[in-house]
């Protein structure tokens, strides 16, 4: 049932399964097997089961021919964002990708490209946890005894971004770091742009993170090509509702002559005291900074 793992790294296109394997009842997976020392696609064929998702097939491989095949998963319901991988070259959740919705022929499953490999389909996503530390915290006024009052229209804006399940596929697909490793230390990525936007649009927040997001988190590196939006499994409109509004807010702060003139005349600072504090407390991204 299982073919020998074959090294197909250079030419997966030619790796068509034997004729007998392409019938409806067989599913062929080319799974990346490897670690920091290198790797290759290994091909496996299994009888297909009705309604399966790619993660099911991976599980069957683990229980059968490939017991040490590494992959992350938790909920198997598209809710935790653990099982991100690149299926047929596109970032997707393995647990939400049905085998029967993919075009016939072998399915390639590779780890996320942007992050260092640990083993097989598992990558080291600590980049994202390091970036998460750099976002200045929510800072509301002290709460009244009865709790804060907010309107649904205001919370809905932030709620869209809080749907994020941290699958990090937007980070993976973003060419700023996917194709340019050297940008990583100075680029927080779309996942954290929506986090910043969420806080900036929070009706109770008192921080101003515009300079921070422009100067240190690399908002200007994004060229709004929208791949993050295309891959987001939560259908968050990352570019339209977070990145572009943040770019516009930066324009308000830095590129709007009318605003600048107004501030000059009224002698107002565009940074609030809290923001100034946040920026001076900002440790600056350093590639080797430990999370702890």
């Amino acid at each position: 049932m299982t073919t020998e793992p074959a090294a197909l790294a250079s030419e997966p296109e030619t790796a068509t399964a034997p004729v007998a394997d392409t019938t409806d009842s067989t599913v062929t997976l080319q799974v990346w097997r490897g670690d920091p020392d290198g790797g290759a696609f290994a091909e496996y064929s299994l009888p297909a089961n009705e309604g399966e998702v790619v993660l099911d097939v991976v599980h069957r491989l683990q229980a059968g021919p490939a017991p040490d095949l590494a992959c992350r998963w938790n909920c198997k319901a598209g809710k935790c964002g653990s099982c991100s991988a690149e299926i047929n070259g596109r970032p997707r959740l393995m647990c939400m990708t049905r085998v029967d919705e993919l075009p016939p022929g072998p399915i390639t499953v590779a780890p996320m490209r942007t992050f260092p490999i640990i083993r097989d389909l598992v990558t080291d996503v600590s980049f994202n946890f390091a970036m998460a530390k750099l976002v200045p915290a929510f800072s509301p006024p002290p709460p009244p005894a009865e709790g804060y009052r907010m309107q649904q229209i205001d919370v809905e804006r932030g709620q869209e971004f809080r749907k994020c399940i941290e699958c990090f596929m937007c980070q993976d697909v973003c060419h700023v770091i996917r194709d340019h490793e050297e940008n990583k230390p100075a680029y927080a990525g779309p996942r954290f742009f929506i986090r910043i936007a969420e806080l900036e649009m929070h009706p109770l927040d008192t921080n101003d993170r515009r300079d921070l997001v422009r100067q240190q988190m690399g908002l200007g590196m994004c060229n709004i090509t929208k791949c993050c939006t295309e891959v987001c499994p939560e259908h968050i409109k990352i570019t339209d509702n977070a990145i572009i509004p943040m770019k516009e807010r930066v324009v308000d702060a830095d590129f709007d002559p009318v605003g600048w003139l107004g501030r000059k005349i009224l002698r107002r600072s565009k940074t609030s005291p809290t923001e100034t504090a946040a920026i001076s407390a900002y440790p600056g991204p350093s590639p080797s900074a430990p999370a702890g």
């Binding site: 997966p12 696609f41 047929n88 490209r113 260092p116 490999i117 600590s126 490793e181 230390p185 080797s288």
Partner: peptide, 20 residues
Amino acid sequence: VSPVTIGGTRGGPDQPTVRK
């Protein structure tokens, strides 16, 4: 503590795209 790696050897095939 959970080590942080920003750079490192990448996985997956070394080609511009796997999309078919």
